[in-house]
């Protein structure tokens, strides 16, 4: 099967004198490198200029709340099962009377942890989630001094009410059916 048309037959013939002198090849190389002197530079001056992320960039996760601020996650565990890196663990709990404004479903995740060092940012968790609860975002996981701090709990993962994260772009790209 031929994938590209760039394949080349390898030949081991004697080099001609011109080739063995190397000088023509060196001049060809020099002219290539000097051309790059005038090319547009690929560098972005980071803190001042930021690279634009793709709308489906897979960075730090977020556990979404719905429009009324209730947590979407129902602790079904599908994300944990689908995770190839086994990065997600959770404890389920039953919603008590009077907690309806906190959790959308009758069952919710009392503890929900993602180990960011295990995660490979594949995005399978967000594809698996039936409740529209977990999404990857364009935020970059911050660096830490200890490994333990990379186990993110609900305090980090759950979306803050005063700092809501827009995932409509991702939804459009993934066309996830919300039930």
């Amino acid at each position: 099967m031929q994938l590209t048309n760039r394949a080349q037959q390898v030949v081991q013939k004697e080099m001609t004198l011109a080739e063995r002198l190397y000088l023509p090849a060196i001049f060809a190389g020099l002219s290539i490198t000097i051309k790059h002197l005038f090319k547009k530079k690929a560098t972005l001056k980071y803190p001042e200029v930021k690279r634009e992320f793709a709308p489906v960039y897979r960075g730090q996760h977020v556990l979404k709340r719905d429009a009324e601020g209730r947590e979407n996650c129902t602790a079904c565990g599908l994300c944990a099962v689908s995770c190839p890196a086994e990065a997600i663990t959770m404890d389920a709990a039953e919603r008590k009377a009077g907690e309806e404004h906190l959790y959308r479903e009758e069952k919710y995740a009392a503890k929900y942890e993602i180990n960011m060092l295990r995660c490979i940012y594949c995005g399978l968790c967000e594809e698996a989630c039936p409740k529209d609860a977990i999404y990857l975002t364009d935020r970059i996981v911050a660096s830490e001094f200890t490994r333990g701090k990379f186990v993110y709990g609900k305090d980090v993962l759950v979306e803050k009410m005063d700092d809501r994260i827009d995932v409509s772009q991702r939804k459009k790209h993934y066309s996830i059916v919300n039930n």
Binding site: T33, I34, H36, L37, K39, K40, K41, A42, T43, K45
Partner: peptide, 13 residues
């Protein structure tokens, strides 16, 4: 700087 320019970077700035 020259290394950077020849490699399409901008080098120390």
């Amino acid at each position: 700087k020259i290394a950077a320019f020849l490699q399409d970077r901008i080098g120390p700035d």
